[in-house]
Simulated assay, not measured.
Amino acid sequence: MGVAIREAEGNDRELIVRLLDDAFQNDPVSRWVFPGEEHRRTTHHRLMAAFTGIVLAEGRIDVTEDGSACALWLPISPGRHSTAEDPDGAARLREAVDPGNERVERVARLMAEVHPVDRAHEYLWMIAVAPARQGEGLGTALIREVIDRCDREGQPAYLEASTARSAKLYERLGFGFTNRAVDLPDGPRMWPMWREPR
């Protein structure tokens, strides 16, 4: 049986933020951005809300019909970064989310340095599956929804994997490393990955 997927709307915002917050609380990058557990518990959701707002305005969020998984996609034009990766956007993001935390801005700037923008592509900014539903293929179904379209339209796709485990999943879907890892200072590594259309 297939996974029912629909495009999120404005009234799905709270659901998406909660899903992202739950799924990424213990992600290595989130732990680096918000190193204190209590601070992360009380602040992390603001970053997820900011991301959700950007993608609702500029891109597309796909969500499973049961609300257990979502994928945030941004169309990237040649020569253009996403709002959060733009230098001014990264500073505004920090100010809105956690003004005293330079890591909010720094991670966005580091990601922008390796994000290829010489060709139009679909950018999988984030994908989240409720912790209790991980391993059921929901993330794969969400990604396939867009990469199948990319294949039909001859468009590449891009993402940054935040764990070696997720990188393996993306490899199975045709993504390959760009050979420009992001090493967060005294923190984890992120693997930028690119997929040519098939």
Rank of each mutant, 00 (worst) to 15 (best):
G139N: 06
E122P: 00
E153T: 06
R152G: 12
R165L: 12
V17G: 03
N101H: 11
H115E: 00
D21F: 15
V107S: 01
V29Q: 03
P87T: 05
A181I: 08
R18G: 11
W194N: 00
G67F: 06
E160I: 11
E122I: 09
R41S: 07
G100T: 13
R41N: 06
V104E: 02
D22W: 08
P188Q: 00
E122N: 07
E85Y: 12
R152E: 15
S68C: 10
E153Y: 06
E37Q: 07
D66L: 08
W191Q: 08
L15R: 10
W191E: 04
A71Y: 06
R18S: 15
G67I: 11
R13T: 13
E95T: 10
R172E: 12
G135D: 06
I76H: 10
R195M: 10
W125C: 12
G10D: 09
R13K: 08
A112C: 09
R119Q: 04
D98E: 12
A130D: 13
P192T: 00
P197V: 10
L169P: 03
R80C: 07
E145Q: 13
V146G: 00
E7F: 02
M190I: 04
G176E: 14
G10C: 04
T52A: 08
A130K: 06
D86I: 02
N101L: 11
T64K: 05
M126P: 00
L19M: 10
H115D: 01
A141E: 01
R92F: 07
M111Y: 08
S162L: 06
A164S: 14
E102H: 14
R195F: 09
G36D: 15
D151N: 11
R189Y: 05
P87G: 03
H45I: 09
G89Y: 10
M193N: 12
V33E: 02
G79P: 02
E136N: 02
A141Q: 00
D118E: 15
E145T: 13
L47M: 15
V107M: 04
D118F: 08
A91F: 10
G79A: 02
I143P: 00
L169M: 12
P156R: 11
R106E: 15
D62I: 05
T42P: 00
S68Y: 01
F34E: 05
R195W: 06
V182Y: 01
R18Y: 04
R119L: 06
G176A: 11
W191C: 02
Q134K: 02
F24N: 04
S166G: 05
I5A: 03
M193G: 11
C150I: 04
V146T: 14
E95M: 05
P28L: 08
V182S: 02
P156Y: 12
G139R: 07
A8W: 11
A4T: 00
A130T: 01
V63T: 14
A8R: 15
A71V: 13
S162C: 13
D86L: 12
Q134A: 01
R149A: 15
D148T: 09
A57M: 03
V17C: 07
W32Q: 03
V129F: 09
E14Y: 07
G89L: 07
L20Y: 04
E105C: 14
T83N: 04
I76Q: 15
P156H: 04
C150N: 13
D62M: 14
W125Q: 15
I76V: 15
H44N: 09
G187R: 01
G154P: 01
R41P: 03
G187F: 02
Q25F: 12
V63L: 14
R198C: 03
V29C: 03
